[in-house]
């Protein structure tokens, strides 16, 4: 996982801020976010709805349209800044170096074009020399790779002939078509039933390992993060509040938000007790608190002077499986206390 070469990381986002123009002025959905994805690494961005995780994903791909815009920051793909590139420059990157998998409530595939046509189009767009016949053969191969039964016949079917799980397999096939370095997967299994979700996750895990592709997984499901990702970034109100090795962070969260989120998942070990709900709601992005965005809901810092008035800076914490970063005024204190508890 640690890179010892001097090569730039596959993806490096620096100080990215994405704003949307509203009647009340510009509202930042992503605020000064930095993150790194190395080759073949699986990174999760986890958070609740409205935290800005999908906006972050779209910003990386340059898919933010008016009234939204990237206000500042850089998106470096192998050292090259993508922010401000034209559509015609971006089209050679999207679907080739970086591809996208979307949550699928029926909507991620064009309903009036066959599945085959959409795969073939993706192939030939980035490989102009490819004949239609060769592209078709390659599309069948791709469908086989994602375990769609009777691939050859199903190529000419329309999306509505596919079940939800099968459509998500097609999305994975399209994402893999041009051997990308990075796949951005936005809630890829959210709309699926548990057994189908398990199938799709197992498939994604296999193809990603086979091809050595890096994955940036956007999800709200901490269980999926635990099973799938090496690194997790917890997002709240447009910022990444905690990041580090998945195992360490989920076992011993330092940020109060991460802890509260984990504790709000029903745990069979605590049947009969009340769940730890997070009171209130995420802040209105157009009226952010002046200090820490989580302060009004925080069981630890609520009412403390420093939390109310000052935005916390990231603090480095050493965990058993590597360094983590936490945006909390009391990070060091909380981490120390947590390791004491673990030790005793």
């Amino acid at each position: 996982m640690s890179s010892t070469t001097n090569q730039p990381p596959l993806l490096e986002v620096r100080g990215l801020t994405t704003e949307f123009a509203t009647r009340a002025g510009a509202v930042a959905a992503v605020r000064d976010v930095s993150l790194t994805v190395r080759r073949s690494e699986k990174v999760a961005i986890v958070g609740e709805s409205g935290c800005g995780k999908s906006t972050l994903a779209l910003s990386i791909l340059g898919l933010i349209d008016k009234p939204g815009r990237i206000a500042s920051g850089q998106v470096l793909l192998e050292g090259r800044d993508l922010v401000g590139l034209s559509e015609s420059a971006m089209k050679t990157i999207r679907g080739k170096t970086v591809s996208l998998i979307f949550q699928d409530p029926m909507g991620a595939l064009d309903p009036i074009k066959t599945v085959g046509a959409q795969i073939i189009d993706t192939l030939r767009r980035h490989q102009p020399g490819l004949s239609h016949k060769a592209a078709r053969a390659r599309a069948v191969e791709l469908l086989r790779e994602v375990e769609v039964p009777a691939a050859e016949r199903r190529l000419d079917d329309y999306p509505h002939h596919y079940s939800g799980g099968m459509r998500q397999r097609v999305m994975i096939a399209i994402a893999l078509a041009n051997a990308p370095d990075l796949i951005i997967a936005d809630e890829p299994t959210t709309a699926l039933d548990v057994t189908t979700q398990a199938q799709v996750l197992a498939l994604l895990e296999r193809v990603v390992a086979d091809h050595g592709v890096a994955v940036l997984l956007i999800t709200h499901n901490l269980g999926v993060v635990a099973e799938f990702c090496d690194v997790v970034q917890v997002m709240y109100a447009g910022r990444i509040v905690e990041r580090g090795p998945t195992e360490a962070i989920l076992a011993r969260p330092t940020h109060p938000y991460t802890q509260a989120l984990l504790e709000s998942i029903p745990d069979p070990a605590r049947i009969g007790t009340r769940l730890r709900a997070i009171p209130g709601m995420p802040p209105d992005l157009s009226a952010m608190p002046s200090g820490c965005a989580f302060e009004p809901r925080c069981f630890f810092g609520h009412g403390r002077e420093i939390c109310r008035t000052r935005q916390p800076a990231p603090v480095e914490i050493e965990t058993t499986s590597g360094p983590s970063q936490v945006e909390c005024h009391f990070a060091t204190e909380r981490a120390a206390r947590a390791s004491e508890v673990a030790a005793s």
């Binding site: 971006m90 679907g95 980035h126």
Partner: peptide, 22 residues
């Protein structure tokens, strides 16, 4: 605003091409 337009652009179509073709 449908996801398949975003997905089409994610496959490598420009916004104009995604609008016209999809």
């Amino acid at each position: 605003r449908e996801p398949f337009i975003t997905v089409a652009r994610g496959r490598g179509l420009t916004r104009w091409a995604a609008y016209v073709r999809h």
